[in-house]
C-alpha cells in the first residue's frame, strides 16, 4: 500500500507540477498490476473476509487504476515510450495457459485468481527491464520497487507461519510468491548497497 500510495502521490497532479512527474516508471508493469488486482479481487463483493481485506482490495484496484490513468492519459507526454518496451504478451499468454493447466479448481473465478497469481510474479519484469535499459532508477522509483518487492517477501513469512500454526498452505501462491521475490533479489541488492547509502542506482552500461 505504501509503494502504490507513493506512486499515486508522486503522479498526482496536485502534488507535482506535470514536468516533475517521476519518469522511469514502466506503464506496462502498472497495467499488469491493474490486471492482476482486478482478476484476483473479483470476489470483492461475494467473499467478505474482513474490513481490512476488503479495504485493501478496493485500495489496490483504485490506486493502480489511478496510476495507469495518470501515467498513460493525463501525463502521457512524460511517459517514456522508447524505454518501456518489454512485450507483455509474452508474459500474459504463458500465465493464462498455466492458469488453465495448473489450478486448484476449474471454475472461472478460480482460473482468474490463479492467472492473477502467476501474472503478479512476472508483472515487475517490464519495470526491471526498463531500469536496465535506462541504466538507472530514480530514488523514489527505488523506494517504490523496494516496497512492492518486500510486500510479497513478507507474505512468505506469513505462509511459513500459517503452515506451522494453521497447518494451511497454498502451493500455487507460495511458488509464484517465491519466484516473484527472487526476481526482486538483484534489485534488493542494489537498493540496500546503493540507495540506502544515498546513492542513485546506476546500472553498468
Amino acid at each position: 500500500a505504501a509503494g502504490i500510495g507513493l506512486l499515486v502521490g508522486m503522479n498526482c497532479p496536485k502534488a507535482v507540477k506535470p514536468r516533475d512527474v517521476i519518469t522511469g516508471i514502466s506503464g506496462r508493469s502498472q497495467i499488469l498490476f491493474l490486471v492482476t488486482y482486478v482478476a484476483r479481487y473479483l470476489d470483492l463483493l461475494t467473499n467478505f473476509v474482513s474490513v481490512y481485506n476488503t479495504a485493501m482490495k478496493v485500495f489496490f484496484i483504485a490506486a493502480s487504476a489511478a496510476t495507469v490513468y495518470l501515467m498513460l492519459f493525463k501525463f502521457k507526454a512524460t511517459y517514456d515510450h522508447n524505454h518501456d518496451t518489454l512485450r507483455v504478451e509474452f508474459l500474459i499468454a504463458p500465465c493464462a495457459l498455466l492458469a488453465l493447466v495448473v489450478n486448484h479448481d476449474f471454475t472461472p473465478l478460480e482460473i482468474l485468481w490463479t492467472f492473477s497469481i502467476y501474472l503478479e510474479s512476472v508483472a515487475i519484469l517490464p519495470q526491471l527491464f526498463m531500469v536496465s535499459k535506462t541504466g538507472e532508477a530514480e530514488t523514489i522509483t527505488s523506494h517504490y520497487l523496494f516496497a512492492l518487492g518486500s510486500y510479497r517477501a513478507l507474505y512468505i513469512l506469513n505462509w511459513i507461519y500459517r503452515y506451522y500454526f494453521d497447518n494451511f498452505f497454498d502451493l500455487i501462491a507460495i511458488v509464484a510468491g517465491v519466484v516473484q521475490t527472487v526476481l526482486y533479489c538483484d534489485f534488493f541488492y542494489l537498493y540496500i548497497t546503493k540507495v540506502l547509502k544515498g546513492k542513485k542506482i546506476v546500472l553498468p552500461a
Partner: peptide, 10 residues
C-alpha cells in the same frame, strides 16, 4: 485443499 476454502489473502 485451498480451493475448497475461499481465498483469504490479498
Amino acid at each position: 485443499d485451498p480451493s475448497k476454502e475461499e481465498h483469504d489473502e490479498l
